[in-house]
Amino acid sequence: MSGSTPTPSAAAVPQAPSRPGVTAALVVAGLAALIAAPFLFYPVFVMTLLCFALFAAAFNLLLGYTGLLSFGHAAFFGGAAYFTAHAAKVWGWSPELALLLGVAGAAGLGLVMGAVAIRRQGIYFAMVTLALSQMFFFACLQMPFTHGEDGIQSVPRGMLLGLIDLNRPLAMYFFVAAVFVLGLAIIWRIVNSPFGMILKAIRENEQRAISLGYSVARYKLSAFVMSAALAGLAGGLKALVLQFATLTDVAWQMSGEVILMTLLGGIGTMVGPVFGAGLVIALQNRLATSDFPVTIITGLVFMVCVLLFRRGLIGELAASRIGKTLGMRADT
């Protein structure tokens, strides 16, 4: 009975072909918002948000576009934060090199974790990634370079390319914004590439993809490593923004949080995870200063969203009448 076909994720149902004009308008509006943001909001808040948005988008490359639910992405995000922080602080590396080390480290971790987990299906895949990331968490707790419970503190931002002083708030902001845009552009390119087409085919009907001669495990592993590397980019960036790297970023709660952000915004969409991250971070920011218990509130919001908007906020919008008249598709 292995001829049975897996049902494609109901959430990622593209609508009518997207009009290029709408995409272009969205991109322009997004860039304008990025440029205006530091003048309207507290820059560190916006930068943190961008890091998490990139993290969620990287996660979505795996969940939304490959159909794999990883419960271990904290290892890549938090691991890269440690690598970048260590390189910048202890070795005195420039921020761009420290960031690249974070990306490379996360990719390496992703290759190891992915190689172990990739042949597991569904919930087993999620459990294996969770177990592996917990092992990494305990390794981080024990290894001297992470400074255990204290974490790596006062990470210098340094001089970008030896020229631009990232201690100037606006310089740092535009550096972060540029990395964010670059990260999203890379994800967009991967999704809309010949390789991305094979990923889509595998997600839609894995058995059929095999019968066409594709060794699906390889494509999944490649996507896993790419997603890990991009999550690492986000994590390393966050270490430079907040100037510390701690156990919080490698803990399993962080893996859960990125799932939450992605599902809230809408999996398999480009802007969904960005909005999801924004919502979660803004909510946490608001509630941190109030008496409400943060986790309970975010949990409730999550439940309501999952029940009401099964495609996520952006996915629902794209599927709605408004989205259709705009010519949006669910994977914009």
């Binding site: 076909t5 593209p14 839609e204 009907n205 095999i210 066409l212 001669g213």
Partner: peptide, 24 residues
Amino acid sequence: MAPDAVARMGLVRSFQISAVFPHL
């Protein structure tokens, strides 16, 4: 052999339940 390797050798199957990529 693995199924994808067999397919690459030129033995290709269809499925009892129609196997297309529905959203392509």
